[in-house]
């Protein structure tokens, strides 16, 4: 029998930080199975979604139910990020060495 955990009751309607999910993960027993009821969780950060992905794709039996649209989209972004190569610019951003505060002000005024 899977245990149901109501995430809104535990954390509120927004999961802001990676630490929130880390704390949740630490409270689970590896020998048990869980359903995380995500109903009413309307916002999630990318970091928290990434940690939630780790939790649901790790060694423990943890699944999500009643995922709200915003959270679903953020989880999809995280999943995509896992499988697509990271996009980085072909050229490095220039590093400009400013010896004086005058050089800094000059660089800030130069478009």
């Amino acid at each position: 029998m899977k245990q149901i955990i109501n995430i809104q009751e535990k954390f509120g309607t927004e999961l802001h930080t990676r630490q929130m999910v880390e704390r949740l993960a630490a409270s689970l027993n590896a020998a048990d199975s869980y359903l995380l009821d995500m109903s009413g969780v309307m916002q999630i950060s990318r970091s928290a979604a990434d940690e939630l992905y780790n939790l649901t794709h790790g060694n423990m039996s943890v699944d999500l139910i009643n995922v709200e649209p915003f959270v679903e989209k953020m989880l999809s972004s995280v999943k995509l990020g896992r499988f697509l190569p990271r996009q980085r610019p072909a050229t490095d951003t220039p590093i400009i060495h400013c010896e004086t505060i005058g050089n800094v002000l000059q660089q800030l005024s130069a478009r």
Binding site: P94, I96, I101, V104
Partner: peptide, 19 residues
């Protein structure tokens, strides 16, 4: 160091030692 990114520019300034 200061990174500045706007519509017109993207650059990193290595600042003088007093900052």
């Amino acid at each position: 160091a200061l990174l500045l990114y706007s519509q017109d520019t993207k650059k990193i300034l290595s600042l003088p030692s007093e900052i």
